[in-house]
């Protein structure tokens, strides 16, 4: 059985030839894999080594270095909550604590919250990113609604 879907295989193939060196494609390929599977499995790395001759140590180094990549299973909805200076001042910690509790509850079971170093939108503090969508001016009052709405809107894609 092929490790990657036909669509992802095409994408990887195009990325492999897109840059000056094949190695430059590592980050974009990992993005593509993670977009589909939410994390990067050992099988994926094996396939990158076997089918595309990437060095597995180099791939693993990259996965481990960058915050976005995960080599452990992740839930489909990744909530990255900024905990940097401005968001901290605007109360991010309380919301993260709240979300951590929420993620144990019905309706949030496919969500996982991680404090995140900076999302680059401090004028909208506190800020969170659910997968690729940014939410600003998050508060204890509005956060549950934001998350649930996001899950409802995107679940067809993420839970396929």
């Amino acid at each position: 059985m092929a490790v990657f879907s036909a669509q992802l295989t095409d994408k990887i193939k195009s990325l492999v030839g897109r840059y000056e060196t094949k190695r430059s494609a590592i980050l974009p390929i990992l993005h593509a894999i993670q977009d589909e599977y939410h994390w990067i499995h050992e099988e994926h790395i094996n396939a990158l080594e076997k089918d595309y001759e990437f060095n597995r140590v180099q791939v693993k180094e990259v996965i481990s270095f960058y915050d976005i990549y995960s080599s452990t299973p992740k839930k489909p909805f990744q909530i990255r909550f900024c905990n940097n200076i401005t968001c901290h001042m605007m109360g991010s910690q309380q919301i993260v604590d709240h979300l951590k509790d929420q993620c144990e509850r019905t309706g949030f079971e496919n969500c996982e919250v991680t404090p995140y170093p900076c999302l680059g939108k401090c004028d909208g503090a506190p800020v969170m990113l659910i997968n690729k969508t940014r939410y600003e001016n998050v508060s204890l009052e509005n956060v549950d609604g934001m998350v649930l709405k996001h899950v409802q809107t995107h679940q067809k894609k993420e839970l396929r």
């Binding site: 060095n55 140590v57 180099q58 693993k60 180094e61 481990s64 270095f65």
Partner: peptide
């Protein structure tokens, strides 16, 4: 190329 340094900061770790 059998060794790498994984992770970053003071979590960085040498390994195969």
């Amino acid at each position: 190329d059998a060794l790498g340094i994984f992770d970053r900061g003071d979590r960085a770790i040498i390994g195969t």
